[in-house]
Design a protein around this nucleic acid. Structure first.
Length: 587
DNA sequence: GCCGTTTTCGGCCCGACTGTTTTCAGTCG
């Protein structure tokens, strides 16, 4: 396949619109400004649109909900000229140094503008000086405590400002500890971790936890005294926010047990999902808030105790948390047409597994096989690294030796189908470790990128597509190679990659490691638009305890709207082997 | 700026906490 350079991606365009939204909010002096919210909504619509909007005619663009004449004109200007006049004007009005001020907790658009107008504060250093001179406290609505709060905020800036997001692999253990602590309190009846963590976003702003209790004051006191809570940001009768010693903000909200479902819906979000639920409630003469769904006229509570009850009372199918992003799921739920998302119980095999034969493998092969059998898997692909990974890869002699030991292990686990495979290394030119003769003897081949992450998009795309077109390669492992919060993924033209994978019948792996979650969920949504494209969800286990990571891979797949029938390792053994055979014969 | 089974104008989700106020604006989620 010939690779053609791509036009401006939806993501890039959405980023411009998002910036426009933020700057307009500043100009209007309010994040709630309707013009700002319109741009924000437009950014979301572009980001989540399945087709490349840069290639659509104007009329089609304007037909997308959330995009009107004015926004479409600006997008056209961006695509044609590479910039937007209005954005350029706003950028010069609000330089980055000034915007930095709004990252200080408690400083929003109004305050930032007042600081600039009244005190000439243009950046954080100016503000520090103004506080030192006790000038800020003279402003209307400000006082000594405001100065103190800003001062503390400046100290923390960079450590954990509003903009900083925490990778899920770091946030999840903190949330679990907090949840366990809260669940252990006598006053608490139920605990639910909500927010972006429950929606399985790959980075988290803060940890949101809802608890139910008849004694909110006691719970609030316990939260303030929670182990690891370094600083109390705010604490009222039903809501407390603390900063942990690791710099992660934890918000705990208490409601009565009868309100637990409504509160869980509300705090799980997303913001846009909530807005759509409320609009739907409003249209039915109902009011939805964190306390319940009630009839506006009679004041009668229609639903509140369970999430299922709230969705049902709104005339909606239950929406799984992973897809509550306000990107069309509410409309689908109203028509009972939500996708049939893959579930953990659907998984029947693991097709990316290492053992101590690999240099970075930790558990012996026999233990890995036994663990796979213990989990009730029907089939497993043992995929040691290929020889191009100097330290971790296997020589041809080692491959032969492992193949022999697998024969013995098969006798011990007759119910488990063991595929002797490999995780090949995709070189910069798209080639892999071995020649056809060696490759042909593997029963299952994953191929992945492990180095040279900074080639151009064209180079990366060609490299991966060449691997996809290699007839011996059954699946592409951790597609982008990203490490969340540490390393961005390689720059790929996803549309071209997905088309090639669908053409050749090569599966795309959804890697379960919390550090990777690769393919990323937004790309999965795009991939789901490509007919015939198949996935695997595998753990990439290097140790027996990592088989359990499959829950994360499945959660990420669900967030990407991946349906069960697209995932080949949900197939029963016989059907899976038939799929593999037909895949290899077609290549 | 977007949108329309009341509407091309007048709406646009809802509430807690803080710090400053005597009834509320700003910020945040």
């Amino acid at each position: 396949m010939r690779y053609r350079g791509s036009v401006l991606s939806n993501r890039r365009i959405a980023a411009y619109l998002q910036e426009l939204a933020e700057l307009v909010a500043l100009e209007e002096g309010s994040a709630q400004a309707f013009r700002a919210r319109a741009y924000e909504k437009a950014a979301g619509a572009v980001r989540d649109h399945p087709a490349a909007v840069a290639e659509l005619p104007l009329a089609d663009l304007q037909a997308i909900p959330g995009l009107g004449k004015a926004t479409v004109t600006k997008m056209r200007q961006l695509i044609d000229t590479g910039s937007i006049d209005q954005l350029d004007r706003l950028r010069s009005l609000f330089p980055p140094d000034f915007i930095e001020l709004t990252r200080i907790p408690g400083v929003g658009p109004k305050t930032a503008l007042m600081l600039r107008d009244r005190l000439g504060v243009g950046n954080v250093d100016d503000l520090r000086a103004a506080i030192a001179a006790e000038q800020v406290r003279e402003l209307p609505g400000m006082g000594a405590r405001s100065e103190e709060k800003m001062s503390r905020g400046i100290e923390r800036l960079g450590l954990h400002g509003k903009a900083r997001r925490t990778p899920i692999i770091q946030a999840l253990p903190v949330a679990r500890e907090c949840a366990a602590y809260l669940a252990g309190l006598d006053e608490v009846t139920e605990v639910q971790v909500c927010g972006s963590l429950r929606r399985f976003s790959d980075t988290i702003g803060d940890v949101d936890i809802v608890v139910s209790s008849e004694l909110p004051a006691a719970v609030m006191a316990a939260v303030v005294a929670m182990p690891g809570a370094a600083e109390v940001i705010a604490s009222g009768g039903t809501k407390t926010s603390v900063l942990t010693d690791r710099g992660l903000q934890v918000d705990v909200r208490v409601v009565a047990p009868a309100q637990f479902g409504a509160a869980s819906v509300y705090f799980t979000g997303s913001k846009q999902h909530n807005i759509e639920l409320r609009q739907r409630a409003m249209a039915a003469g109902l009011l939805l808030n964190e306390y319940g769904l009630e009839d506006v006229e009679s004041g009668e509570v229609v639903a509140a105790a369970t999430e299922e009850g709230v969705y049902q009372a709104l005339g909606l199918a239950y929406v799984p948390p992973e897809i509550r992003e306000g990107v069309g799921e509410v409309a689908l739920a109203a028509e009972d047409r939500l996708p049939h998302l893959v579930g953990v119980d659907d998984i029947r095999g693991d097709l990316h597994v290492h053992s101590a034969w690999s240099g970075d493998g930790r558990s012996p092969l026999a233990e890995m096989i036994a663990a796979a059998a213990d989990r009730g898997l029907e089939y497993v692909g043992i995929t040691e690294h290929g020889e191009d990974l100097a330290i971790n890869g296997l020589s041809r002699q080692q491959i032969a030796a492992e193949r022999e030991s697998l024969d013995e292990l098969r006798l011990l686990h007759p119910d488990l189908t063991i595929l002797h495979g490999a995780e090949l290394n995709i070189a910069a030119d798209g080639g892999v470790d071995y020649d056809d003769e060696v490759l042909s003897r593997f029963e299952w081949c994953v191929a992945s990128v492990h180095s040279q992450f900074d080639l151009t998009q064209a180079q990366q795309t060609m490299r991966v597509i060449r691997a996809i077109e290699n007839p011996w390669i059954d699946a592409i492992g951790h597609l982008t190679g990203r490490r969340i919060g540490k390393r961005p993924g390689i720059d790929l033209d996803f549309a071209a990659v997905f088309a090639a994978a669908a053409d050749t019948g090569t599966a795309l792996e959804i890697n379960s490691h919390l550090d990777r979650l690769d393919v990323p969920a937004p790309a999965l949504r795009q991939a789901m638009q490509v007919p015939g494209l198949r996935f695997t969800i595998s753990t990439d286990s290097h140790h027996v305890r990592e088989f359990g990571n499959i829950v994360w891979g499945v959660a990420n797949a669900r967030r990407g709207w991946v349906e069960t029938d697209r995932v080949v390792n949900t197939l029963p053994k016989k059907a899976f082997l038939a799929w593999l055979k037909s895949r290899r014969s077609r290549s």
